[in-house]
């Protein structure tokens, strides 16, 4: 039960959406873009979200594309995670996405929603960080294309009125060796204790993390340590752990110390396998 009222708008073009946002804002209404809606609805119940208008972007064709364009895979931000999994054009993303929530929920949760949401795991961003994907963002000055690393720092740094339209990933990345492992407190469903996604390119391993810190991240220093093949693997991992961003999550899913323990073994498995390939 959403304990407040909002108006619902369903634009059919990017421009219309942007204009709507401007108009609603000028009317003094707190406005949000709305994709799967799962987070907006469930956090509203708990008074963690408040809005007076929502703009549903699912009717915008660009937000629902799933196609190859030249050397790029273009994914609409409003695609549901299961649509992406089923198309399976980006196996690493399929894998990472398939661990989010549960299957029925993923029929609704969108790629853009997962990345732009408040719930800080944002697991679907990991493959995008690893593949240096670009994001297409719509704002009042039109569309812009940016490297994801530039705009996603812990979270999406969007300006008011902007929304994520598409993700563009270079095709060459899609067939590279990868691993994605989600470890939970216990068994199969739930938030991550740690999620690690990795990709091997030019004999270098790239790694991105969720559940380790209160934000997902990819870190150059961590990758450097992990790829420092002078050292035995264990030392490389230990070094990398030392250079993780802080704070390490210490919460109901697991203590910080235990997370590091799990992370260490997860990294060990991933790197051993990828280096063996």
């Amino acid at each position: 039960m959403v304990p407040f009222d909002f108006t619902y708008h369903q634009p059919s073009s990017i421009q219309e959406a942007i204009q709507l946002f401007q108009t609603l804002q000028q009317q003094g209404k707190k406005t949000m873009y709305y994709a799967g809606g799962t987070e907006i609805i469930t956090l509203s119940r708990l008074n963690l979200v408040f809005t007076e208008a929502v703009i549903d972007i699912k009717g915008i064709p660009e937000c629902r594309t799933l196609r190859f364009d030249k050397n790029y895979l273009v994914l609409g931000a409003a695609l549901s995670l299961t649509t992406i999994e089923e198309a399976n054009v980006f196996p690493l993303l399929s894998k990472a996405a398939s661990e989010v929530a549960d299957r029925t929920a993923r029929n609704q949760i969108t790629l853009g929603g997962n990345i732009c949401g408040q719930i800080f795991y944002r697991e679907a961003v990991l493959p995008l960080l690893l593949t240096d994907s670009d994001v297409i963002i719509a704002g009042k000055d039109g569309l812009k294309q940016l490297p994801i690393q530039q705009i996603f720092q812990k979270q999406m740094r969007l300006h008011p009125g902007e929304f994520l339209v598409q993700i563009m990933t270079e095709q060459t990345y899609l067939s590279l060796p990868y691993r994605s492992i989600k470890k939970r407190k216990q068994w199969e469903v739930g938030y991550p204790l740690v999620t690690v996604a990795a990709l091997k390119t030019n004999e270098q391993i790239r790694v991105a993390f969720s559940g380790v810190c209160p934000f997902p991240f990819r870190s150059q220093t961590v990758e450097e340590r992990l790829n420092d093949r002078q050292l035995p693997l264990e030392s490389r991992i230990n070094e990398a752990l030392h250079h993780l961003p802080r704070p390490i999550l210490d919460d109901i899913e697991g203590s910080a110390e235990y997370r590091l323990f799990v992370l260490k073994h997860t990294l060990f498995d991933i790197i051993t396998e990828l280096e063996g390939e």
Partner: peptide, 10 residues
């Protein structure tokens, strides 16, 4: 979400 009973397949 955080108090998680057993699920199918477990």
């Amino acid at each position: 979400r955080t108090y998680r009973p057993l699920r199918f397949g477990e």
